[in-house]
Design a protein around this nucleic acid. Structure first.
Lengths: 240, 240
DNA sequence: CGCCAATTTGAGGACCGTCAACGAGAGTGG
DNA sequence: CCACTCTCGTTGACGGTCCTCAAATTGGCG
């Protein structure tokens, strides 16, 4: 009998963690049960509404968080007050900037979300004591770096239609469990936010969405709910 | 008397390292003298010509390198063979992708460069034995991530002229020692490469360069040598 | 000097931004 | 129940920025 999957080993870890999306994520997935218990004692599950700021740019946040559900957008606030979205994060990603007290970005809930908040000081200590954890966070940073560079290609070389298709593909592959070919999901972003992320205007985004709809690549229901009948088709829009 | 600056402590480290640009960089700056000696014994200083590929995308490189001089461009090779530059690295940056054998990018010398090459297996072992080193590489990854996101803003929201100004600013602040206000440097990139990095065409880059020249923000000599009489002026072009 | 590649310059057109009007839902109040 | 308003999204017309195609110019190198 396989003990590892029987639940017996889950004894000793906080109840709240047992069914948590982030339980096997970047942070919690590499902690010992003792550390997990310690972190659990000092962490707080929090519901945040869409649009709510989790970390403000330039502030000295003394907290990190894990995303348990929902989508978080990373924004750069320009000197003139304009927002620019530079990345999205999905459950069970880790949110925060190790080592540096001051955040260079603001993190804002794109959808209603649940996050698990814990003190910076505690995790920083665990990082210095746990090479595994350092390594795991390093790994996430490298993955985000890959994603950011992928996005640089998208913004630099692709047309408006390809940009919109790229974003739909990004969301489809991260936000939702998918069947073999067909995929359906709710857009976590408004048209204005999509435009922001893609470096386009609302109108252009809207036009390209209807183009994609008319060419049969996607179906749109209720403005927010998207159905992709054939993901391969969507991918062909991108590399074209 | 301050021993730390007298050179006495340099005894025991490899001769080749003593005057190396990367000696206090991301990797070598955190190694013990024993580790430095070990790494030095297994490393190789190599001159690479401009245009030479250091790491090929998709290949399984068994080496890492430090940039000792010159500029390296990170490229994504598209399925259709086109190149897209997604980042630049300067001395004394570290080049390589810890943990993952297969590179997702190709690294190519933009200028003639000198690099210090050492075996992946050795550094990977040092990483696992030296939390300081892990931490230092993690730090570089986070810095690159910040730079990539800064670039996303540049590509997404700025005009052609602002993009060119941004690139000149990036190069001016990384490639050369600068005086109080005035700065002069050689462009490490051709017009074609600049266009590639900025998501523009050669012609547009050329036009915007002459615009900047005519408005007095830069002076151009020999196509490659740029003089910025007033860096503040250049910065004002960007945030505008 | 002559060739070659790189860069610059010019003319015209496509794509996307700007401005404006319209339509669809959601919430409010009569 | 309906009118009203507010926000969000869509659609259309027009103009500007940047791309495309083409030619001229520069500089390097034999």
């Amino acid at each position: 009998m396989d003990v590892a999957h029987s639940g017996v080993l889950e004894v000793g870890i906080p109840v709240a963690c047992r069914s948590c999306q982030a339980r096997h994520g970047v942070v919690c997935g590499v902690l010992s049960s003792g550390q997990l218990k310690d972190l659990g004692r000092h962490s707080l599950r929090r519901k945040v509404d869409a649009g709510c700021e989790i970390i403000a740019q330039g502030s000295e946040s003394s907290f990190y968080s894990n995303i348990m559900s929902g989508v978080v957008k990373l924004c750069k606030v320009m000197p003139d007050g304009r927002h620019e979205i530079v990345g999205l994060q999905f459950a069970p990603d880790f949110v925060g900037r190790p080592f540096v007290r001051e955040s260079t970005l603001s993190a804002e809930a794109a959808t209603d979300a649940e996050i698990c908040v814990f003190p910076r000081s505690l995790l920083d200590r665990m990082i210095s004591e746990t090479p595994e954890l350092q390594r795991s966070l390093h790994d996430q940073a490298l993955k985000e770096l890959d994603a950011a560079r992928e996005w640089i290609v998208t913004l630099g070389r692709r047309t408006a239609e390809e940009k919109v298709a790229s974003l739909l593909h990004l969301i489809a592959t991260h936000a939702e469990p998918q069947t073999a070919t067909s995929t359906a999901f709710d857009l976590p972003l408004s048209r204005a936010e999509i435009a922001d992320f893609l470096g386009l205007t609302i109108e252009t985004v809207s036009r390209q969405m209807t183009r994609l709809r008319k060419s049969g690549v996607i179906r749109i229901e209720n403005f927010r709910h998207i159905i992709v009948p054939d993901m391969d088709e969507l991918e062909r829009m991108i590399s074209a």
